[in-house]
């Protein structure tokens, strides 16, 4: 187990190397000239060249890449070329607000979808199950923008249940502004997750061990919670754990409509501004998070299911 863990941690290094290299090359080929962006609309060739020198962009490409690797090791990505702000500040000031929406939204969704899917799996093909499937399909068929626009208009503006948008940095004050986006996030995720989890539970319900458990005279409740739920946890854990990195990155639409100062738009804005230091930092952070949580999900398999033996 320890060997496996160490090996998996070491795998992160070539993955990170590969991702950063691809990101670096892609940006250099198709990202737009950052020196020209920084030089502005009246820039002369000399000014662009001068900024290129200031940014270190006139160095050979391999040296620029080595600089990038150094930044990864020291975790110091410097300042944004576009806003001139410190990237670590930009990142840390955005993580809290993003997580304030995504974590409660994510947990509440799971609290609803897992038991509900289990019940629907059990009641497969019943009237309740069919109605729920139609509702779920309807939920995922509607654009997320519709939920946001309608939620904001009716719940916040017309009925005054929530503030329309805004933010309060204090821990006690922020919930006033995050409740509506959290609710919308839950509604947005319900349909897809229920359909996915229900399929997993149905698959488990048809397996031999379920018939055996029932033949032994176990109650439905015990079969569902002690046997099926536990066996179905592997794909559920995969989905859940791999979603965690994206929780940190926030939700672009929710944050932008509800004025949550999170990380949702940071990467998109950086790409639109050819702001390479921010792009680099975000790619590295995302890669580390993704590979780490991938590892965690693999390790959790062994905990949840003793059949999984790590070689």
């Amino acid at each position: 187990m320890l060997k496996y863990t160490i090996r998996r941690i070491l795998y992160v290094i070539p993955i990170l190397f590969g991702v950063t290299l691809v990101c670096f090359l892609l940006f250099n080929v198709a990202g737009g000239d950052p020196a020209a962006q920084a030089a502005g609309k009246y820039a002369t060739v000399e000014q662009i060249e001068s900024i290129r020198a200031e940014l270190g962009l006139n160095q050979p490409i391999y040296l620029q890449y080595l600089d990038y690797l150094k930044q990864i090791l020291t975790f110091d990505f410097g300042r944004s070329w576009s806003t001139k702000q410190k990237i670590s500040e930009m990142f840390w000031s955005g993580v809290g607000p993003s997580l304030s929406v995504t974590v409660p939204g994510f947990l509440i969704t799971l609290m609803i979808t897992i038991p509900l899917s289990l019940v629907l799996g059990y009641l497969r093909d019943s009237f309740i199950d069919r109605t729920a499937m139609v509702v779920c399909l309807a939920l995922i068929s509607i654009s997320s923008l519709v939920y946001i626009l309608a939620g904001q208009y009716f719940l916040a503006y017309l009925w005054g249940m929530f503030p329309i948008s805004g933010w309060d940095s204090s821990w006690t004050g922020r919930w006033e502004y995050t409740t509506l986006p959290i609710l919308i996030m839950v509604v947005l995720s319900l349909g897809g997750q229920i359909l996915f989890f229900r399929t997993i539970f149905i698959e488990e319900l048809s397996k031999d061990y379920v018939r055996t458990a029932r033949a032994k005279g176990l109650s439905n409740k015990k079969v569902l919670t002690k046997h099926i739920l536990r066996n179905a946890l592997i794909p559920i854990i995969t989905l859940v754990v791999l979603q965690v990195p994206f929780l940190i990155l926030g939700s672009l639409l929710l944050e932008s409509f509800f004025g949550i100062p999170g990380l949702g738009g940071l990467l998109v804005t950086a790409i639109n501004n050819a702001d390479f230091p921010v792009i680099k930092a975000m790619i590295v952070i995302l890669t580390i998070l993704y590979t780490t949580f991938n590892l965690i999900s693999d390790l959790l398999y062994a905990v949840v299911d003793p059949k999984v033996r790590l070689q």
């Binding site: 719940l155 919930w175 509506l180 609710l183």
Partner: peptide, 12 residues
Amino acid sequence: LSFLGITLGCTK
């Protein structure tokens, strides 16, 4: 959740 929203909404 709805109650929380209503309560907080009223504290504006």
